[in-house]
């Protein structure tokens, strides 16, 4: 670990005081997948922190490693083909990567809740809603039948499900997509977690239902003081709900900062490109979209330079040979780009 630790110390988020206060601290996390095509560095040395009660978004496109990085926190990466190769995940003072299987099971669903994209596949189809909720409570907190029943009713009420008594006896297939996602949220909240990881929680839902679910999650996490990691590709969702944003590209965080900085003064060409390529309802109808040229890299063929180089309009010679690290450009705002200072000059986006 010698060389990797020194890389981690350079990381802007790991300065003394901040890491002490953080609920979750991820340092130099490496996750690789061993495929027939070669080794994929799905997560290639990412570091970030999540403070108690805050909402952090991880944004990126398919294959950028955003889901893998979040699933790694609970060690949910299927092995094989995947493996966590190195790094630290310190949650509430304990290193999750050092725990045995029994230890991590106690964290999953109790201290850290999860909400997945497709609630139909993450709920058990042959158990009633009530049983799935009370099982969590009985397993993790040792609550007795009667108390967990009462708590289950309370939880369904909390997530806005009417007639909770009746719903407890129903099965997942009785519910609509939005209702199932509410049940998932109720389950993730059951044991009063400190952190919820939501992986594309509304991608499968319609826009009016998406708005309902996101408002609910925002309201509950604020009210109950739960921290939230939300993984999404939707830049609008991030803008509305996140305090801080990590932008991922090809397994690395390329830009990180508070939402306002990321959206108004992006300091990485990829972030800039993303923001320019989406049509927006709040602006006059543009003549033409400005897409990012090319396509995402083959993750088995990454070279020594910056992974974004073939698509980057700001590239210089250096980008071919040296991969830029994530470095501070401003208070709490960092970018992994050799042109990070140049980008600031023509910034007013």
């Amino acid at each position: 670990m010698g060389a990797k630790t020194s890389a981690a110390i350079n990381d802007p988020f790991l300065g003394g005081d901040i890491s002490l206060a953080s609920l979750l601290e991820i340092a130099d996390l490496q996750v690789q997948f061993f495929t027939s095509e070669g080794i994929v560095r799905a997560v290639d040395g990412i570091s970030y922190t999540v403070d108690a009660g805050e909402t952090v978004a991880i944004v990126g496109e398919s294959g950028s490693g955003k889901s893998v990085s979040a699933l790694s926190i609970l060690r949910l990466i299927p092995d094989p083909p995947g493996r966590i190769m190195g790094g630290k995940i310190i949650f509430d003072g304990q290193d999750l990567l050092g725990l045995d299987e029994e230890g991590i099971r106690k964290v999953r669903g109790r201290d850290i809740g999860m909400v997945f994209q497709e609630p139909m596949t993450s709920l058990n189809p042959v158990l009633s809603i009530g049983r799935q909720l009370t099982e969590t409570l009985e397993q993790h907190l040792g609550t007795n039948r009667e108390d967990s029943q009462t708590r289950a009713v309370e939880l369904l009420g909390l997530v806005g499900i009417s007639e909770p008594q009746r719903r407890l006896r129903q099965y997942p297939h009785h519910l609509s997509g939005g209702m199932r996602q509410r049940v998932m949220i109720a389950m993730s909240l059951a044991c009063n977690p400190k952190l919820i990881i939501a992986d594309e929680p509304t991608t499968a839902l319609d826009v009016t239902i998406q708005a309902q679910i996101l408002e609910l999650m925002k309201d509950l996490t604020r009210r109950l003081g739960v921290a939230l990691i939300i993984i999404t590709h939707n830049l609008g969702v991030v803008a509305r709900y996140a305090d801080r944003v990590n932008v991922m590209y090809a397994g690395r965080i390329v830009e990180s900062g508070v939402s306002a900085d990321i959206y108004h003064r992006p300091r990485h060409p990829y972030t800039r490109g993303l923001l320019k390529s989406v049509p927006r309802l709040d602006q006059p109808r543009g003549e033409r979209l400005i897409p990012i040229v090319g396509h995402p890299p083959d993750m088995t063929q990454l070279g020594a330079g910056c992974a974004f180089l073939p698509r980057c309009p700001y590239a210089v010679d250096r980008c071919q040979h040296e991969r830029p690290d994530l470095e501070l450009v401003d208070d709490g705002h960092s970018s992994a780009c050799w042109q990070r200072d140049e980008l600031d000059k023509g910034a007013a986006a």
Partner: peptide, 24 residues
């Protein structure tokens, strides 16, 4: 429907009122 679409701008979003449509 239009109100439910979040806009990719945190400043605008912070100032926007959201009227959620109820039910499904």
């Amino acid at each position: 429907l239009l109100n439910a679409v979040p806009v990719p701008d945190p400043t605008i979003e912070a100032g926007r009122k959201h009227h959620l449509v109820k039910g499904e």
